[in-house]
Amino acid sequence: MSLLLQPVHMLGALQQNLSFHQQWQFADAAVLLAITQEENPQILLTRRTAQMRLHAGEVSLPGGKREMSDENNIAVALREAQEETALNPNDVQLLGELPTQKSRSGIRVKPIVGIIPPRLALVPQPSEIDRIFFMPLQQFMLAAPEAYLVKHQQQEFYFPSIHFDNEIVWGLTARILVSLLDQGLCYQKEWPFLLNTPET
């Protein structure tokens, strides 16, 4: 069993364990995993509007696809976070990157990790985001995954998820957070690809 860190020690562990690779490749998209600098660090999360073409209404990390003007994955993550939440890039202390993840649609996504001050005045971009909220990192660490039903092409799948503040954190966002625990805090959270169908 991995050693469970107290919240007050989490930021120090992240700073020690995370870094940027000297050789990097552009991903198709990047997200910013922003964590507040306080005794009980919290993760910045957003909820996509119901009008979005992909992943409508889902909880996500600020981020999006690369543009030709972006110099690297860091630039993508910071630009998208600013566009979606009004987060000033100067307020982000960059820590490192996590392994590239692949979305359900096949897009390669690079997570960039940074620390931000608590209680920033953030504003959701209404055409993309309808809510900004924060989840304590320790709460995600300790919460047991619950089955979340997803219907796709007339089939039903149960994905692991975390329920928090009337939101459901699952899919790519949850996998990135599990990767943060593993890479940044040396904590291996049990996270199956699919859960067995709950008994009815």
Rank of each mutant, 00 (worst) to 15 (best):
94 L>N: 05
73 N>E: 11
149 L>V: 00
123 V>C: 02
128 E>R: 02
146 E>R: 11
139 Q>Y: 08
163 H>Y: 13
83 E>V: 00
137 L>H: 04
81 A>I: 05
124 P>I: 04
120 L>I: 11
63 G>C: 04
114 G>L: 02
114 G>A: 12
94 L>V: 13
130 D>Q: 09
158 Y>H: 11
128 E>N: 08
103 S>D: 05
65 K>C: 06
82 Q>G: 05
144 A>K: 06
64 G>D: 13
96 G>E: 14
104 R>S: 14
159 F>M: 04
104 R>N: 09
72 N>S: 12
135 M>K: 14
87 L>E: 03
68 M>W: 06
122 L>S: 12
153 Q>R: 07
100 T>V: 14
84 E>R: 08
139 Q>I: 03
62 P>D: 14
157 F>Q: 09
163 H>R: 12
102 K>M: 14
64 G>K: 13
134 F>H: 11
106 G>I: 01
75 A>C: 06
149 L>T: 01
102 K>E: 13
138 Q>K: 14
99 P>G: 13
85 T>I: 04
93 Q>P: 02
75 A>E: 02
108 R>I: 00
77 A>M: 11
76 V>R: 07
98 L>E: 04
156 E>L: 03
86 A>I: 00
131 R>V: 15
119 R>V: 00
130 D>C: 11
141 M>V: 08
124 P>S: 02
138 Q>D: 14
73 N>H: 09
110 K>G: 02
137 L>Y: 09
118 P>V: 15
153 Q>V: 09
150 V>I: 12
155 Q>F: 03
68 M>V: 10
157 F>V: 00
133 F>L: 09
117 P>C: 08
88 N>D: 13
103 S>K: 01
137 L>V: 13
97 E>D: 15
94 L>W: 01
141 M>K: 05
158 Y>E: 04
70 D>V: 09
103 S>N: 05
130 D>P: 14
70 D>Q: 10
146 E>Q: 09
132 I>L: 08
151 K>G: 04
104 R>P: 03
119 R>T: 00
113 V>A: 05
132 I>E: 02
64 G>I: 12
73 N>C: 13
148 Y>S: 07
84 E>I: 05
130 D>S: 13
131 R>L: 15
105 S>R: 15
108 R>F: 02
106 G>C: 11
112 I>H: 08
93 Q>T: 10
115 I>Y: 03
163 H>W: 11
144 A>V: 03
106 G>T: 04
104 R>K: 05
91 D>G: 06
158 Y>W: 13
67 E>F: 10
154 Q>D: 14
115 I>H: 13
118 P>E: 15
88 N>E: 15
152 H>I: 06
160 P>N: 15
94 L>P: 00
157 F>K: 10
159 F>R: 03
164 F>N: 04
145 P>I: 01
159 F>V: 01
143 A>C: 04
141 M>L: 07
111 P>C: 01
135 M>A: 15
156 E>S: 12
71 E>N: 07
147 A>E: 09
120 L>C: 07
118 P>H: 14
73 N>D: 10
131 R>C: 10
127 S>T: 14
138 Q>C: 10
137 L>K: 01
83 E>N: 05
132 I>M: 00
73 N>Y: 10
137 L>E: 07
149 L>M: 07
161 S>M: 02
